[in-house]
Every structure is written in structure tokens, then in C-alpha cells.
Computed example of a mutant assay.
Amino acid sequence: MTARRPLRVLFVCTQNKLRSPTAETIFREHAGWEVASAGTDRTADTPLTRDLLEWADVAVCMQKQHRDWIRSKLKGALPDDRILILGIPDDYDYMDAELVELLNRTVPGRLEHTSPRPLDPPLHSR
């Protein structure tokens, strides 16, 4: 029996400076998760790309506008049912105590029934 791979969680905000990097930092050591973060703005510290979305099992967006951006610019890179919206406005600094508490309270529960996406079979077995 093969071990199950970690759930790949991509946190998304606008600039990838405050909210999504905070989420990446606090969940970096979460058992069973592999995490990354990116931003929808082209000047983001880590701009969101199709490759990042295709790597992810789930995208956790801070606001609806981030999901809408994904649907518009990177359509099909990740199924809609694997794009979650937290509804966290851009009102927090990096590692703000209130933001950390809010993320810890909401994210694990939203992801507890999410499993890794099946990987495509190797080309030679198709």
C-alpha cells in the first residue's frame, strides 16, 4: 500500500505580501499539508500562475475577487469545487494576531474533507 501524498494547499490574495504569506507561514508545519501562496496581481511577490494552480489540490482565496480572477485568467487550471473563498478582507498586516487566529479557526475545518486530486497516470500507461 502506498502512502497518501500531502494535500497541496495554495493560499491566494492580491499582492502575496500579507494575507496569503501569513497563511502559508502558519500552516507550513500542518500535518498532511504541503502549502504555498501567490497573488493575483502581476506585481505580486509570487504571481499566481497556471502551473501553481495545476500543482494545487485546492486554492484557498482570501476574497471572491481572487476566485473570479482565477476563473477569468486561468480557467480550467483547477476545478471550481476546489477553489474556496474565506472572505478575509485586506485589513491585516503580515502575521497580525487577529488574522492568525481567524485563519486557524476557519481553514482546517474548511479543508478537513478535502483529499488530494488523483494524479494523471504516467504517459506510458495510457
Rank of each mutant, 00 (worst) to 15 (best):
L111K: 05
G32C: 04
D41Y: 15
T14G: 14
E101M: 06
L48K: 06
V9N: 01
L18F: 09
M62N: 10
R67P: 08
G87D: 12
K75S: 10
S72W: 11
T46E: 04
I26D: 02
T14H: 10
Q15Y: 07
R71V: 11
L7A: 13
E101V: 09
P21T: 05
C13V: 11
D51G: 14
L119M: 15
Q15V: 04
V12K: 00
A38P: 02
V60G: 03
D90R: 02
V107S: 05
Q65D: 14
T40N: 06
L52T: 13
T49N: 03
S72Y: 09
T22M: 07
A31Y: 13
P122T: 04
L84P: 01
P116Q: 11
A44D: 08
T114D: 04
L10I: 06
V58P: 00
R117A: 11
L99W: 01
A44L: 01
I26S: 05
H30F: 11
R71H: 13
T14P: 15
C61V: 05
D81H: 10
H124E: 15
R4G: 12
R8P: 00
C13N: 04
A77H: 04
V100M: 03
K64H: 06
L84D: 04
H113I: 08
D120Y: 07
P108V: 06
T2F: 15
A36N: 10
T106V: 14
L86F: 06
R71M: 13
L84Y: 15
L52R: 03
K64Q: 10
S20C: 03
V58N: 08
A59C: 05
V12G: 05
T22E: 09
I83C: 05
L48R: 02
L99F: 03
D41R: 15
I26N: 00
T40S: 09
R71W: 05
R5A: 12
L102Q: 12
R4C: 13
E24C: 12
L52W: 06
A23N: 09
I70N: 00
D80G: 07
G87W: 02
P21R: 01
A59P: 05
R8H: 02
